[in-house]
């Protein structure tokens, strides 16, 4: 390693830590979220440095992008309620008025009062000790460790794909991914079960955004397809593609587009679960010829993985977009006779 690389890595590390600190400590929540997004982007840089382009993509799309969007929209909703109840000023205008932040600090800021000072010192001390202990533990690890790289490399040719990360995700440890899809679905179920989120902060999208979305959405679809396709060989795959798809959805939602009511019944539900459903079905089908659960025969593995990934991409995209939207689509809340399909209730 050259000195330059060391300097770069060191700088990146320090910047990451500094950004994290600013994110957590900044008085203004909006600023905190923006900083968090920046943090996420730098994280993807770190992933690249660590030779993990797949994660870099995922981090940029999901970790920074979608999480950021979720955070922002949540903040907006918080402030809508605040504005309605009239107790807190909107935080959003502080992009142009940083002087105000001091005042906001008192209201929504850290909420750390002086009486906690002693506790705080104690905590800092404790956590420093923990960090030091962890650092010691990490540094005590041997500097050379192959991990499972050899196993992965040896089995790569029968996995059906040539990108080792995809191989691990969908073949070697496909079961994890299966459960992970369930977690994603679960998050949506959980959000929906909460019901009645405050209405999103609606501003008229304006011509530019409208145009932008018209231009970008097809492109995003294309990119998603590309990422999905390329995932078997190069960085990319279902999660990255799905999040790009979700980005398209988010953009559309932001631009004021709402899907027609007839799609919000079981078509939506179907789209949400198809990834998991296909995954489970494949997993079970593999048992029919006497294999193990999820045992993909090398001959079809590539095709099957692509099948699973395609379905998963769709579901991930729709799920993430739905998460962004928040509450259950409205068609579900009107009486059943208004909707055509039989899936809805209430």
């Amino acid at each position: 390693m050259t000195l330059l690389q060391w300097a770069f890595d060191g700088l990146l590390g320090i910047t990451l830590i500094w950004l994290a600190w600013r994110t957590l400590a900044s008085a203004d929540l909006f600023k905190a979220i923006v900083l968090f997004i920046a943090f996420g982007l730098l994280m993807s840089l770190a992933w690249v440095r660590l030779n993990a382009p797949d994660i870099a993509l995922a981090e940029a799309a999901i970790g920074a992008g979608l999480t950021g969007a979720l955070l922002l929209v949540a903040l907006a909703r918080l402030n809508v309620v605040a504005a309605q109840t009239g107790d807190i000023e909107s935080n959003t205008k502080q992009i142009s008025a940083p002087e105000d932040s001091a005042r906001t600090t008192a209201v929504v800021g850290q909420g750390v009062s002086n009486k906690h000072n002693l506790f705080q010192y104690f905590l800092v001390l404790m956590l420093s000790a923990v960090a030091a202990g962890l650092a010691y533990a990490v540094l005590s690890l041997p500097s050379e460790a192959p991990g499972l790289s050899r196993d992965v490399a040896e089995n790569l040719n029968v996995s059906g794909v040539s990108n080792p990360v995809t191989a691990v995700l969908l073949n070697f440890r496909g079961y994890d991914t299966l459960l992970e899809m369930a977690v994603l679905l679960l998050a949506l179920l959980g959000v929906w079960s909460l019901n009645r989120l405050p209405e999103q902060y609606e501003s008229s999208p304006g011509l530019v955004l409208d145009m932008l979305s018209r231009l970008l959405v097809p492109l995003l679809l294309l990119v998603a397809g590309y990422l999905l396709w390329v995932g078997s060989r190069a960085p990319g795959g279902a999660f990255q593609a799905g999040s790009v798809l979700a980005a398209a959805g988010v953009l559309l939602l932001l631009a004021g587009w709402r899907p027609a009511a007839r799609f919000l019944g079981w078509p939506l539900r179907f789209a949400l679960i198809i990834g998991l459903a296909v995954f489970v079905s494949v997993a079970l089908l593999m048992m029919l010829p006497g294999g193990q659960l999820l045992q993909l025969p090398p001959a079809f593995a590539g095709a099957l993985i692509l099948l699973i990934e395609t379905a998963a991409t769709l579901s991930i995209g729709v799920t993430l977009a739905a998460l962004f939207y928040g509450s259950r689509p409205r068609s579900e809340q009107i009486p059943p006779h208004h909707t055509g399909s039989g899936g809805e209730n209430e």
Partner: peptide
């Protein structure tokens, strides 16, 4: 060599994290 297993784990972790975040945010709003 590239040890892809932790990479896959992290991708899984990121997705789990975003799910949890979404749920947490919705819960916070409620």
């Amino acid at each position: 060599l590239l040890d892809a297993v932790p990479h896959a784990m992290v991708i899984t972790g990121i997705v789990v994290a975003v799910s949890a975040t979404a749920l947490a945010l919705a819960l916070m709003l409620r």
